[in-house]
Amino acid sequence: MQMHHPNGARRSLTCFDHHETLDLATYRPDGRLPFLLKEKDILAGSALGTSFRPGELEVRDDGTGNLLGSRCRSCGAHFFPVREACSGCLSGDLETVKFATEGTLYTYSVVRQSTPDFEVPYVLGYVDFPENVRIMGQIGGCEIDDIKIGMPMVLALEPFGEDDDGNPLTGYRFKPMEPNND
């Protein structure tokens, strides 16, 4: 199902098949059943569109990307998303930085009821990054039973809906750093 999003993008989302395997999956253009996207394809440029939210996720032509935020030049605090002033010291001297792509899972939940924008189920999680920021994202690329609080996670770029003209958009999910599925 697709709905207009305030930033002009349209979202059509999932990350599951019906056996609750958290495959790195995306939707067919008809918005029906997900097909699997092999892991090696995930970062291939051909599968990537523009960032679903360019101010928060940088997507580069070589298939790499980073979540973006602010670093306070005065006190060193980091924030997600980009802020205009530092909540620690109120300095306005902030620079936009790229966050590391590896972090630790703080907590998670399998969401089974959501809005029409999102097909359920999907897994939400909070990942703590080395810059001392905690960022929410969906989790993919593993079995639900294998998800554990405290496990190392890595950022993965993935197709994440499409814009008004039907062009693919790229978003992100977190996946375990060493998935134990095949």
């Binding site: 999003h5 930033n7 939210r53 703080y106 939940s109 994202g137 609080i149 978003g171």
Partner: peptide, 28 residues
């Protein structure tokens, strides 16, 4: 269905719902 943050919010954009957020707190 589920109440969500404002659609402009970065967490809403990745699928945050209020039950989902509280569920994460419950698990922790």
């Amino acid at each position: 269905g589920a109440l969500t943050p404002d659609p402009s919010d970065p967490e809403a954009a990745v699928g945050a719902t209020m039950p989902g957020v509280y569920a994460m707190r419950a698990r922790r």
